[in-house]
Simulated scan of single mutants.
Amino acid sequence: MKSLQNSFVFATAPTVQFGVGCLAQIGTFAANTIGKRCLIVTDRGLVATGIVDQARAALRLCAISCDVFHQVEADPSEATVLSAVSQAQAHEYDSIIGLGGGSSLDVAKLVAFLAGTNAKISDIYGVGKAQGVRLPLILIPTTAGTGSEVTPIAIVTTSADEKMGIVSPVLLPDIAVLDPSLTVGLPAHITAATGIDAMVHAIEAYASASSNNNPISRTLAREALRLIGGSLLRGVHHGDDLEARSQLMVGSMLAGQAFANSPVAAVHALAYPIGGRFKVPHGLSNALVLPHVLRFNAAIAPDDYIEMALSAFPDLIDVPALKRADAFCDALAKLSAECGLPQRLRDVGIDKDSLPGMAHDAMNQSRLLVNNPRPVTEADALTIYEAAW
């Protein structure tokens, strides 16, 4: 158990609005936050579902007009961010709404900041470099996984196979809107991958070596694991189960609050080269390396995994404590398989000859690796990839 006596900072979105169907009331509860002309940042796929039109209609009822930027892609590029910023500045919108998955929310954060401050994106990569007053910002997730609606983090693809992060409290939104009915239409494989992604956020936050690892984050992480562990299979195999969808959405948000303050580590660091090089979705990239990174960590630091195991998998109560960390890793792998996700790197088209290059790329994620409970060398990363292959 970590000491509770160290000083820490915990920051999150000032307001979280949750409720089935609450998107329809967005104009009412957001009217005092946003102006009369906003830009919705989203993707083409979401536009096709009609959800964007629902949001616009709800805003029009409160005399709020809005345009739409719908060019956000998976793993959004710097060029996409700058295109959205250009539209926001040209039309002088007074507020930004991010609507969609983590990519849309990340782009919306940066549009609100860059359009509001006229800063250059090249100047704000890293931690704490984005400073100033952004435009009013509301974030509305349509997946239950990234937790981006309550994190001060935005990830940008800066080259063919590299991602960089921008981390600053100014990226936290004014309001996070959680409407679980927006996730009912998600395909099973997306529900599965985003759910495992949220579990990774909770696990890495709880075990983080960050000096800001704190009792609030750890408490939220364990509750996130309880909610997601108890509802993910129902959400995957019974996609219209609103109770499961609600638990997944709240669990994802809690995990986001946890890792926003107690940062993630080697699972994410090793997942980024998988997504960058092979365009594997982020949640699935995490799922592929998760049990292997945890086994690597648990070999010398098992206590956190022993403590978390029963939150996600109460049935492990029958496993002796000394064996519970290994059982936790096995249970996570089993859950991923039962959700129908690919289990090996080779299953997503990664050849074994690519593993050394991936291990080299993972070492570039020093911002994340420093938080891992066990130091990771390039040789260690290669060993983990080989285990996952």
Rank of each mutant, 00 (worst) to 15 (best):
Q365S: 13
T157I: 02
A31D: 12
S122K: 13
F313Y: 13
E204P: 10
L294K: 09
Y305W: 06
D43K: 07
L294S: 06
M199A: 04
A84C: 09
D353N: 13
A119S: 14
I155P: 04
T219I: 01
T191F: 00
R295N: 11
A74E: 14
A269V: 09
I140T: 01
S168L: 11
L316K: 07
Q17P: 00
T194W: 00
A48S: 14
N286E: 06
M249P: 12
Y385T: 07
Q343G: 15
R218Y: 02
L23M: 12
N118E: 14
H237C: 04
I384S: 02
S217W: 09
A202K: 06
V184N: 04
C66H: 04
R234I: 09
A298T: 09
G102T: 05
D106Q: 05
A57Y: 03
L332I: 13
T142R: 07
Y206K: 09
G340T: 10
G27Y: 00
Y272G: 01
A205G: 07
S211T: 13
A160P: 01
A255H: 08
L105S: 04
K129D: 08
D330E: 15
G230T: 12
S211P: 02
H282Y: 03
M164T: 10
S95H: 06
I40C: 11
Y305P: 11
G256P: 07
V20S: 12
E223V: 07
I97L: 15
F29G: 03
D347E: 14
I306D: 02
A331G: 03
A144S: 15
C339D: 06
N372P: 02
P314V: 06
A144P: 01
N118C: 10
K36Y: 01
G100I: 00
T157A: 11
L369F: 05
L248D: 03
P273A: 08
D75A: 14
P169Q: 08
A90N: 14
Q131K: 15
G357E: 14
N364H: 15
P14N: 09
G195M: 02
S246G: 15
D179L: 05
H282M: 04
V280C: 08
E243G: 11
N364F: 11
N214D: 13
A130L: 08
E73A: 13
D197Y: 07
G349I: 09
S104R: 01
